[in-house]
Amino acid sequence: MEMNYLAILVAAASSFVVGFIWYNPKVFGTIWMNEIGMTEEKARQANMAKVFGLSFVFAFMLAFMLPTIVIHQVGAAQLAGGNANDPALIAFLEVHGDMFRTFQHGALHGFFAALFIVFPILATNGLYEQRSFKYIFVTSGYWMVTLTIMGAIICGWK
Rank of each mutant, 00 (worst) to 15 (best):
T102I: 10
G82R: 12
G97C: 04
L66T: 02
P120K: 09
N4E: 05
A113Y: 15
E2M: 02
G106K: 11
A12G: 15
G19V: 04
W32R: 08
Q104Y: 04
P87L: 00
S132R: 12
N83W: 05
G110H: 10
G151Q: 06
F133K: 13
N47Q: 08
W143M: 13
Q104E: 12
E94V: 00
G53S: 00
A7I: 05
A123E: 03
I90H: 03
G110T: 06
G29P: 11
G53L: 02
H96E: 07
M33I: 04
D98F: 03
S55T: 12
G151C: 09
T124K: 05
R131M: 10
S14T: 14
F133W: 15
I121D: 07
L6V: 15
M1R: 13
L93G: 01
R101L: 02
F56I: 08
T148S: 06
M33D: 07
L115C: 10
V18T: 01
N125D: 07
L62Y: 02
W143P: 04
C155N: 08
P25C: 11
F28A: 10
A7M: 07
V145C: 06
I121A: 13
H96W: 14
A63M: 10
L62N: 10
V57L: 12
G19E: 02
D98H: 10
G110C: 06
L108Q: 03
A11S: 13
N47G: 04
F60K: 11
W22F: 02
M150P: 05
A59N: 15
I21P: 04
M33K: 15
L62I: 09
C155Q: 06
H72V: 14
L79G: 05
G97P: 05
S14N: 11
A59D: 09
A114R: 07
A76Y: 03
F111D: 00
Q104A: 14
V70C: 04
R131V: 07
P25T: 11
M144S: 09
L93V: 10
A43K: 15
H96Y: 12
V10Q: 07
V18G: 09
A88M: 02
S132H: 07
I71A: 03
I153H: 08
F56R: 13
F112N: 13
V51T: 14
N34D: 00
Y5A: 04
S140A: 13
Y128N: 12
N125P: 01
F100M: 14
F103D: 03
F100I: 11
N85L: 14
V138M: 05
L108Y: 08
L54H: 01
P87A: 01
V95Y: 06
Y5K: 01
I136H: 10
A12T: 11
A77T: 10
F64K: 00
N125E: 11
I154K: 07
M99W: 14
A107F: 09
Y142S: 12
K42F: 05
F111E: 01
G81D: 10
I21H: 01
M1Q: 08
H105G: 01
Y5E: 01
I149S: 01
M144W: 08
I36K: 09
P25K: 15
G29F: 02
Y5I: 08
Q104F: 11
E40F: 06
F58R: 09
I8S: 07
P67H: 05
L79A: 12
A7W: 03
Y142K: 12
G37N: 11
E35Y: 03
K26M: 12
